[in-house]
Amino acid sequence: MRSWCVKQVKTDTYQLDAGALQFDCIIGKAGVIDASAKREGDMATPRCEMPIRAVYYRADRVQIPALPFPTFPITASCGWCDAPEHPAYNRHVDLALHAPFDASHEVMWRDDTAYDIVVELGFNDAPVIAGRGSAIFIHCIAPGKTHTAGCVALVHDDLLALLALASPDQHVIVT
């Protein structure tokens, strides 16, 4: 198993260490929290080890190289359920298939560039526990952003370079 490590390098400054390469990144506004204390909407990034599950991408904006895990184009109907009481909590949802999707959710087709590339991390998904946190991703840093809602974010080109290093058993450790 190969691991990339997200670590604090200075006050409010984080870096993703991928061995030979290091990338500046941003994390949740509330900082890092122990995974057992993670809760939906707390704006914290969980301290734990998470496998890469899949990559979603905006095919109209970016070309993704062949990767060792599933890849899916993001469409206007892609969403991610963040409603703890819903059966699809912490899962990708097809908003058109379930229209209207009345439960709380993120729309993955965004006007900004944050979700041009989205790496789904395996957090609170085996099994899903209601309210323990959802949609922990590695994604692009949107212009002007200095933190995320709990994800890890990198500059677009850095995220592409990182994915080029990925192995089928790739994990991300947040320390």
Rank of each mutant, 00 (worst) to 15 (best):
H156Y: 04
S167P: 04
A88W: 03
W109H: 05
D82G: 11
A153L: 01
D157S: 13
G133F: 03
V93K: 03
D158I: 11
V93S: 07
P143G: 12
H139R: 06
A99Q: 01
P127T: 01
V152C: 05
L165N: 10
L121Y: 07
L162C: 11
T146Q: 13
C140M: 03
G79D: 05
D82I: 15
P84W: 05
V107N: 14
P84G: 03
H92Q: 07
D102R: 08
H139I: 03
D158W: 06
I74R: 01
A66H: 14
P68R: 09
A166W: 04
I136Y: 08
P73S: 13
V107R: 15
P73R: 13
H156G: 01
L97D: 04
P84L: 08
P127N: 05
T113E: 12
A164M: 13
S104P: 04
A83M: 08
A103Q: 07
A76K: 04
V152W: 02
W109Y: 07
S104N: 14
F69M: 14
T75Y: 03
A166F: 03
H105M: 13
L121K: 08
H139K: 06
F69G: 02
D158T: 05
V155G: 00
A166C: 15
L121V: 08
S167E: 15
Y115D: 00
W80A: 04
P73M: 11
A76Y: 06
T75C: 05
L67R: 09
T71M: 13
L160P: 11
H105E: 12
A164T: 11
W109K: 02
D158Q: 12
E85V: 07
A149W: 05
I117N: 09
D158P: 05
L163H: 12
R110H: 03
R110W: 08
E85S: 15
A164W: 08
V93A: 07
A142R: 13
P100K: 04
I141T: 05
E120M: 11
N124D: 12
P127F: 09
S134A: 14
T148M: 06
V155M: 00
V119M: 14
H156C: 00
L97A: 12
C140V: 08
D125S: 05
A114C: 04
A164R: 15
Y115P: 01
I74M: 02
K145Q: 12
Y89W: 01
R91A: 05
P143K: 12
L154V: 04
P87S: 08
A126E: 07
L163S: 14
A88R: 13
P127E: 00
D94Y: 00
I74L: 04
D158H: 14
M108H: 02
A114M: 09
C81R: 02
P87G: 10
A130L: 06
H105A: 13
I74S: 02
D111H: 10
L67F: 09
I129N: 09
T148S: 13
A161G: 09
L154R: 02
A114D: 01
A66K: 14
G150P: 12
F69Y: 14
F101D: 07
V119S: 11
A149I: 06
P73Y: 12
P73T: 13
C151R: 09
L97K: 02
S104A: 14
P168F: 10
H86R: 06
V119I: 14
H105F: 11
H147W: 08
R132Q: 13
